Simulated assay, not measured.
Amino acid sequence: MVAPNAVTAMALCFGLTGVRYGISGEWERAVLSILFAGVLDGLDGRIARLLRGESRFGAELDSLSDSIAFGVAPALILYLWSLHAMPKFGWIFALAHALSCALRLARFNANIDVDVQPHKSAGFLTGVPAPAGAGLAFVPLYLWLVTGEDIFRAWYVVAPWAAFIAFLMISNIATYTWSALRLRKRIRLEAIALAGLLAALLVTDPWLTLLLICGLYVALIPFGILSYAKVRRQREAAADPAA
């Protein structure tokens, strides 16, 4: 249990470190801290399964870490970077992100022991996961870092986008997981090559690459909704012999 929970604790610390960099105005380091927390969050569960160190304590710690690293920390960074300039309501939009992340994680915890989970059993998630929500919330910041244009830092651009991502996190829409994206055998080598090139792009031009990844993720959301609707229709047909 020690190894996966230590990785979860590291993710939490990286999320809070992002706030520290945000306070000092080091925006690139602030965002990279949150993104690295997301990488660690993706590893802790796999490490737990590999070492057979899964526990209820680890699940609770993971949710608390996610709430801070991908809810509170991005909300504070966005507020310090842009939303503080919004008259009266800037803090409300920052709170919306943190609150939506906490509500999403609470819903996830409440459903851990539920036997019937239609989205999960079909290989889908319910809403946008917390790490992805944090990454998507920073899209205006990525654009600002790439272009240097202050329009992307304006509160009237950042606030609606933050509200949109907050909605996606607590929504009931079906979104893809890695298990839902099953690759055909004839394109697996190409997928491996693409992953290698993507890693090189992240090192060469991280902000433009992150924009492309976020754009692809958002573009896949409607396809996830349609794919799950097809699965649901097939289940209903199988459950109703008359149909």
Rank of each mutant, 00 (worst) to 15 (best):
R232K: 15
Y176W: 14
T209P: 09
L103C: 02
T177S: 15
A102M: 12
E60R: 06
S100V: 01
L80V: 01
V218M: 15
V39K: 02
G38N: 09
D113I: 01
I221N: 12
L212H: 08
I34H: 10
L210V: 09
L216V: 14
C13D: 01
A200S: 12
I165C: 05
G127W: 07
Y156A: 01
F93D: 03
R182Q: 15
L136K: 09
D240W: 06
A3V: 15
V231W: 10
G53M: 04
L12Y: 11
A122L: 03
F138L: 14
A238D: 13
P74R: 05
A219W: 13
M86I: 04
W91D: 07
T177Q: 14
N109M: 03
N172I: 00
R46D: 09
A3W: 13
L43R: 06
A130V: 08
R153H: 11
A229F: 04
P160G: 10
A229W: 11
P241A: 06
A180H: 13
F138M: 15
L61K: 07
L83C: 05
R107L: 00
L145Y: 02
T177F: 03
W81C: 01
A9P: 01
G123A: 05
Y228Q: 10
P140W: 07
A94E: 08
L136H: 09
V31P: 02
I92Y: 14
L183G: 06
G58F: 03
Y142G: 02
N172R: 14
Y142S: 03
A132P: 09
I170F: 02
A195G: 09
I77P: 02
A137Q: 04
L211S: 12
L35C: 08
W155P: 06
D62Y: 04
F164V: 13
L136A: 13
E54Q: 15
